[in-house]
Simulated assay, not measured.
Amino acid sequence: MLQFNYLNSICLYRYVTVCCVLQGLGSDEESLTEMMCSRNNVELVEIKKVYREMFKKELEKDVSGDTSGDFAKMLLALAQAKRNEPSNVVDYEKIENDARALYEAGVNRKGTDVMTWISIFSERSVPHLQKVFERYKRYSPYEIKESIRKEVKGDLEKSFLTLGAYQLCLENKHLYFASRLNDAMKSKSMKEKVVTRIIVSRCEVVLMKIRAEFKRSFGKSLYQTISEHTKGDYQRALLNLCSGDD
């Protein structure tokens, strides 16, 4: 069995094993986007290590081969794991500069300077980005989410939106995944891939926190919601992984 250095490596191993993105990355852009956009530096480094040990090749090489254009540039920037670590020192000048740069690279010009957006979204710390997004509203008539939708489309749009949503609620990242599960199970055609990916890829400790947030936010336990929206062997497997009601 592979040996890893970090407490949550088993979770990442399960995640990497389950997701088909790791063989034929381009066939599942949604999974690839979530995997790359919702992980911190330590997790991204560990994912790359697991990938290398499992498949004897580099994740970045397969990303380059199976994706293209600005979407590939975004994923490769994230794969570098260069995001700044949070600091107790608030750099107000840098916050101001980044907010203005996002505005000037997008809404305030014809066309989008995508590389400026990629650089800021992939390299700044989460607390810093949260302040940048708030400051951005003083420059732009649109909030960052609406600006993303106006400026980019397709997989790149989804990756920016995932990053934006994740950064904005990272102080409570369990709410992010609880909301994703709720939305997936409440949609007209349940998004089994999303539900499976989140339930299977989150280790027991993290899933317990997601369960608690799910109950607090939606007034019903995750266990009960799974019971209502799934059936058969699939239901039994998810309930078993859920490890009990709340």
Rank of each mutant, 00 (worst) to 15 (best):
48 K>R: 15
134 E>T: 14
114 V>N: 13
54 M>E: 12
19 C>M: 13
17 T>R: 13
147 S>W: 03
71 F>G: 00
121 F>M: 14
18 V>S: 14
73 K>F: 09
103 Y>H: 11
28 D>M: 05
58 E>Y: 06
133 F>W: 02
122 S>D: 08
81 A>P: 09
33 T>Q: 07
21 V>T: 12
43 E>G: 07
143 E>G: 15
26 G>L: 01
115 M>G: 15
55 F>T: 03
74 M>Q: 01
58 E>F: 04
39 R>N: 07
129 L>Q: 00
44 L>T: 10
72 A>Q: 15
70 D>C: 06
128 H>Y: 08
68 S>L: 02
60 E>Q: 11
97 N>M: 09
89 V>R: 07
24 G>H: 15
59 L>S: 06
98 D>Q: 06
77 A>C: 06
113 D>S: 08
84 N>V: 00
137 K>E: 14
138 R>L: 13
55 F>Y: 15
111 G>K: 05
78 L>H: 01
76 L>D: 03
55 F>W: 10
49 K>E: 14
143 E>S: 15
136 Y>S: 02
46 E>P: 05
130 Q>K: 06
23 Q>I: 09
76 L>T: 02
118 I>S: 03
122 S>C: 11
60 E>S: 11
69 G>T: 02
104 E>G: 05
130 Q>V: 00
75 L>E: 05
34 E>M: 07
71 F>N: 00
49 K>Y: 10
62 D>Q: 12
40 N>V: 00
35 M>Y: 04
17 T>D: 10
113 D>T: 05
63 V>S: 02
55 F>K: 08
125 S>T: 02
71 F>Q: 00
119 S>P: 05
147 S>K: 04
99 A>N: 02
79 A>T: 04
21 V>K: 04
27 S>A: 14
135 R>V: 12
138 R>A: 13
46 E>Y: 07
18 V>C: 13
116 T>D: 12
141 P>L: 03
138 R>H: 14
77 A>G: 09
21 V>E: 12
19 C>N: 15
71 F>D: 00
43 E>P: 03
24 G>M: 08
116 T>H: 08
31 S>I: 02
18 V>I: 11
138 R>T: 15
75 L>C: 06
106 G>Y: 05
98 D>I: 10
21 V>D: 07
38 S>L: 09
131 K>N: 13
70 D>F: 11
63 V>N: 00
71 F>T: 02
126 V>D: 01
97 N>R: 03
78 L>V: 03
134 E>S: 06
87 S>H: 04
77 A>M: 05
70 D>I: 03
30 E>V: 12
143 E>I: 13
71 F>M: 00
75 L>N: 09
129 L>I: 07
67 T>D: 07
120 I>V: 06
115 M>C: 14
140 S>L: 07
52 R>M: 14
16 V>R: 04
135 R>T: 14
21 V>C: 15
99 A>R: 02
16 V>M: 10
122 S>Q: 09
118 I>D: 01
93 E>H: 14
37 C>V: 07
21 V>P: 01
16 V>D: 02
